[in-house]
Design a protein around this nucleic acid. Structure first.
Lengths: 223, 223
DNA sequence: ACCTGAACACCGTTCAAGT
DNA sequence: ACCTGAACACCGTTCAAGT
């Protein structure tokens, strides 16, 4: 579990650490210890190193988290924006965004509450998407506002997907809420019949709603 | 700022604290010190008390947060669904939902992956909303799917609102992403001119998009 | 340059002691 | 019962010292 620490003080002949390796270990620590258990002490231990050693590679804990975000950003699929229309490109991008979050369940809360603030990968993705939106005729001041709204939905949907399937069950209060109880059951049956999860159904429906709303809005802006 | 502490050890003649008062102070501390600044040390100081005194009323920090959550469960505004149309009622409800989430920065993930605390209140809210949706003609199996999509967006937007306003700033990479950098600046300027936050703008736009999409979808389902 | 070791201020939590 | 005071293990971060 805790690897033995035998290194003496002083610069080692060859570097023990590098940024990529630290980020790798950071994801492992979050996975094992949860968001609240993600401490630099544990991260250092995972790397068989003392906490201050990390400060040679990252300014502070937030900087480590920022780098983790960058890693996730590289999983985002923005290829559609470069070659197709903005409204169809949104779907694979939003799905990949949510999937990236879901790949590191414990990290979602940790990563979602921190600023993206100039992470190289993210910025490159945003540049591609922004160009596509502007070319489609969106006003400049709305591009990032839309982007953030879509991301917020993807993040919230990822959190929802982590909840158990009976998350919305009225439980002991079903008798007091017959209409809701029946609707909740109907939702679960419908998803089961289609071999999908209720969380996926909400994500896909919400995404379709937002894109439909965007198409309407752009048409109005052009008129 | 920090109120003077002159009480001697030992049981005071009359209790200094009570649970409601502690929860009140907890909201003030979160408001003043932010998510990371919400500590029991600060909460105790706000109450002119030492930290261990809080443990007489709450088992631990999480219990305090849970009590705060319970306080806000009743703040969800579903009154519009009972007296008006579903599509206009969504706005005050979604806003109150997000506002409630924003009061618990540290526990948004818990809130999202569990039914809201004080389940009785929540189920009653869902019953009201479900009845309104069904009456409007929504298919039974889509009612809760829509509800969850809206909640996911509200939760994701609450997380976004916790980040600093320059959250999306490209920072040092602005030169590599000129289109995005300009769009991000335009977004901030636009929000500043309207005396609103960028996070609020994204939430309001996304909410409007989803409702517009819902109206279209319902019209199609009826046709 | 790159790591350890010691130190600082802070945290959540426990518990004995005082009234 | 209800509060303080002292203590514990832990945290993020800084910095001198060793190689």
């Amino acid at each position: 579990m805790t690897e033995v620490q035998t290194r003496k003080a002083g610069r080692p002949k060859t570097s023990v650490l590098n940024p990529d390796q630290i980020v790798d270990a950071a994801f492992e620590v979050v996975h094992e210890a949860g968001p609240d258990g993600f401490t630099l002490t544990r991260l250092a231990a995972k790397l068989s190193v003392k906490p201050p050693a990390l400060y040679h590679y990252f300014a502070n804990k937030d900087a480590v988290i920022k780098a983790m975000r960058g890693r996730l950003a590289s999983l985002n699929d923005v290829t559609g924006f470069a070659r197709g229309s903005w409204d169809t490109a949104i779907f694979p991008w939003a799905r990949s965004y949510r999937a990236a979050m879901l790949a590191f369940p414990a990290s979602i809360a940790l990563l979602a509450t921190r600023p993206i603030d100039g992470e190289e990968e993210s910025v490159a993705n945003y540049e591609t998407i922004s160009a596509s939106f502007l070319a489609a005729g969106w006003p400049e001041h709305e591009v990032v506002t839309i982007l953030v709204a879509l991301e917020s939905f993807a993040i919230g949907s990822a959190l929802d997907a982590l909840a158990p399937d009976d998350n919305m069950s009225p439980g002991a209060f079903a008798a007091d809420a017959p209409i809701f109880a029946a609707a909740e059951q109907a939702r679960r049956d419908h998803a089961a019949n289609r071999c999908t999860s209720v969380a996926d159904a909400s994500f896909e429906l919400g995404l379709a709603l937002m894109v439909a709303g965007l198409r309407m809005r752009l048409a109005e802006l052009r008129a």
